[in-house]
Design a protein around this nucleic acid. Sequence first.
DNA 1: GCAGGTGTCATAACATTGTGATCGATTCGA
DNA 2: TCGAATCGATCACAATGTTATGACACCTGC
Lengths: 204, 204
Amino acid sequence: MSVPPPETSPDDERAALRRRLIEVATDVLAEEGPSALTARRVTRDAGTSTMAVYTHFGGMPGLVRAIVGDGFARLDRRMGEVPITDDPLQDLVALGESYRRHALEHPHMYAVMFGTTSLGGYGLNREEREIGLVAFGNLVAGVQRAMDAGVLRQGSPDAVAGQLWTALHGYVMLEQSGFHLVVDHPEADVLAPMMTNLMVGLMA
Amino acid sequence: MSVPPPETSPDDERAALRRRLIEVATDVLAEEGPSALTARRVTRDAGTSTMAVYTHFGGMPGLVRAIVGDGFARLDRRMGEVPITDDPLQDLVALGESYRRHALEHPHMYAVMFGTTSLGGYGLNREEREIGLVAFGNLVAGVQRAMDAGVLRQGSPDAVAGQLWTALHGYVMLEQSGFHLVVDHPEADVLAPMMTNLMVGLMA
DNA sequence: GCAGGTGTCATAACATTGTGATCGATTCGA
DNA sequence: TCGAATCGATCACAATGTTATGACACCTGC
């Protein structure tokens, strides 16, 4: 009788190493920041050599792109888990909180995802940015529900969701940059009223 | 009679070299981006050696800090040039346009000023962030005028200016990151209505 | 079953980076 | 005028991304 196939085929090992590199790189980025995200460090922690980065990702920018794609997928999953209630406005608030909490829990990842300053020459191309916009779809859907329910003025859901996302994104960016020194309680004095005021303008 | 002082005293030369390094670094950043902003490149263009960076700025982070301080000062000056009319609301819009235009004209500088991802281990400390907030004062003053004129509901000018700044900052960040693919005309469909809606919420 | 080709990984090297040590020149103060 | 101190030029060092080289395993054709 024939021997059963080995537990791990070469293809599996290839994919496993690729996945392990992404996981290690994500961990290093989360725990020690972008300056620690080097090819030598990641490959050493993953138990391989620097060449793995090049055979699997073509270089450091490719590895960063891979973990950023992972980050966007996680953000999308997280926003997708926000339950839909019969209060569309509250759902939008919950989506925003989910977005912000994700950013707060993964600050370095968030910074790289939306970063303008390059990390080792890394930069998103158009296609990858569109991948990043899948998470945005959750917000568009929420806005559509609010319009259907009549709590938000009719209009383009994309444009309205863009406004909400823009304002929230600005807050999170300033929050992470440490630029929220102007007021003592930025969340209560800036974030909450800003979203409320924006909503008010979106209703009437 | 005593000889007139030489055209350039050593103190002047010191200050001149320091200023020249800042100017060269600012130019290199503007024209070739953060990846070209190296100690060797800047000092070579300035006609000196890498040591100048250390004697005058303590290292590359110090040089970056210096040019960022310059960038904030320029932003402050630019926003301060926005004329005050008898339409406080329009003045706020003009301030926002001034802010955005400055960011568009100096994208790399803006990215470093508000960047979360580090540029060679550079990061702002609390004091330097407060320096960055001087430009914010222009917006606070504009909000105060609008409140005094009764076109904006009474409240904390800091908090309200923070809301406006946050939303605008979010737009500029997304614009520069290239994340404005959702709508065809982001300026008309997102920026303008967002600011308008926010203003509406800030009036009644 | 087996030779050849393909892909992957380890090792080592190279160019470039920030940074520190050393040393000579230049300038200021007494 | 002379000593001290500061500044900058040169060199050195560690770390980075990247590439070349070679060895090894694995598919693929017979």
